[in-house]
Amino acid sequence: MTGSRRSPRGGLARLSRDIWKSRVIYMLVLPGLLWYALFVYAPMGGLTLAFKAYRANKGIMGSPWVGLANFQNVFRDPTFPKVIARTLWINLGRLCFEFPMPVLLALMLNEIRMPRCKKVMQTVMTFPNFLSWVVVSSVLTALLSMQGPLNSVIERLGGKAVPFLGNAKIFLPMLYVSSNWKSMGWSSIIYLAAIAGVDQEQYEAAEIDGASRMQRITRITLPNILPTVSVMLILAMGGIMSGGFDQIFNLSNAATKDVSEVLDIYIYRITFQSPPDFGFSMAISLFRSAVNLALLLIADRGAKMMGGSGLIG
């Protein structure tokens, strides 16, 4: 408070007094910070492997530096550009077919005027989000297999059985559908919370002015939740190079492996299934993380430039 008259010495003394006063708080945050240091930041240090040739007997620190050799190998690898293209293509699809769905669902749920009924439906919708992709893919495989229940209905109606999960051509739509099936209900909660925060007077004024329900949705509700949508979109941009490992790992099979190998799956395969070259894998991982972070920051800037609310600051 009396900062203007304080000498540098006094500042230091005050700082140490403040630190001493907060000693209990430091004790409280210490275990958590230690955990971050050991299990998140120490592995981040392992990213240096991207510039090293890993020798198991020497460990991460002792392995020799090789400069950009790993990256040269990555960019020379014929599979790499294909995997990148596939990842971007799948995630572009996710932005188009997965991202808007919870927004749409939230808008719809907000229009339902039967609270009991709505509550039951919401309970059901949020449930699959709490299951692992192992379980979800098991349920969906059972439902969608060639001799499965859904195909039995299709056949009874005179149609031909569809290999829903065994056809490379429809694998991507199946990814989007199954993702929405699992998490659309849960993701809509964020938007519902945003809708709940909309100022009610706006609706009342619109009602008096004779706005139709559709107009109220598009002119009041939607613009009011746009900041939330923008934040979620920025976050989604930060995952453009990754995402969907659990889903694709569990849903793909021999028939669809040519269209389903995204970057994360590729990293897993070259690391844990073939004789591993950790330097090579790490170079790809670092590339992925860097692109994700860069896109997140760009999207954040972009959102702010367009007058929207950003994520950071």
Partner: peptide
């Protein structure tokens, strides 16, 4: 939340 070392260094750790 936005940056991680990935699974390989964790495995080595």
């Amino acid at each position: 939340m936005f940056f991680s070392g990935g699974i390989i260094p964790l495995y080595l750790l």
